[in-house]
Amino acid sequence: MDIKDIKKPKMSIKRRVQVFVIAAILIYLYYVAFTMTDLTYRGSSLSPLNVFERLFIGPFTDEVALSKIPEYIMYMVETVAIAYAGTLIAAVLAIPFGFLSASNMSKVSYIGKAILNGIRAFPEIMLAIIFVAAVGMGPYAGVLAIGIHSIGMLGKLYAEVIESIDMKVIEALKANGANPIQVMWFGVIPQVIPSFSSYAIYRYEIDVRSSTILGVVGAGGIGAPLILASLQRKWEEVGMMLIVIIVVVTIIDLISGKIRAKIV
């Protein structure tokens, strides 16, 4: 039989009406978006080339930016410390949530997964705004925001690791009369610890990047001086801070990558 002889199924009238209605709605939404949105630019009079030059060349020639390198490094150290404290809290507290969410370890895993989904629904910046209002401006709010959000992410990853363990080891221990504590200590923990450690280190890399933004809302770190300098059009200082962030994040990525390679 020739391929041309095969008749294509015709689209029903109901289906055509649905497609037409959806297309009409999308066209209307695009029309409203482009006609009612103010697209005029009220930024700096500098050209993009000038801004780029001041961002990446100016920091090496501007005396003010060069003189503030130690200050920016200290801000970045604070950012790294915020990420470390938040990740450490999350790496520990996410373990019980991981076991609660694992279907092969918990009979109410749906409750654990619902809790983790609820935690992950709030981004770090939103949590930082809440904690700044609750505990005041400073690194403490940033640590809480990073820690709580990371619990949701690490808890989900931990649960997936626990669900993928070799259950034959658990069954063998139970068959030999091991109690629940012995099963957990000798059967589960040795299988999950390498992956737990690897995920925690990888999450730390992500939290370092996230914590650079939390300073924008007063949660400590390099984010506050970065946004302040950008609002004041001090592009040389912005560029220097970006260089410091790039160097530190790159070093952390290289170190954590080697550590994770040895663990896994």
Rank of each mutant, 00 (worst) to 15 (best):
V64Q: 15
P225V: 02
V217L: 03
I251F: 07
R233C: 01
A224H: 11
V132Q: 03
E78Q: 15
G138H: 03
V244Y: 05
K14Y: 12
T79S: 06
D166G: 03
E236S: 07
L93G: 06
K234I: 00
I252M: 04
I151N: 01
A200R: 05
E78C: 05
K234M: 00
R209Y: 04
T87E: 05
A83P: 07
L93T: 13
I146M: 13
A33S: 10
M184Y: 13
L39P: 08
I3T: 09
Y31C: 07
Y75K: 09
L55T: 06
S45E: 12
S106A: 11
G218T: 08
L214Q: 01
G86V: 09
I69L: 13
K68E: 10
W235G: 00
V188T: 05
N179H: 07
E71N: 14
M240E: 02
T37A: 10
G220D: 03
L29G: 01
M167H: 12
L55Y: 03
I69E: 05
V32C: 12
R16F: 10
P139L: 06
G136Y: 05
R54H: 12
A172H: 11
V17S: 12
I245Y: 05
Y110W: 15
F34W: 14
V244K: 04
I252H: 01
P48Q: 10
M241Y: 09
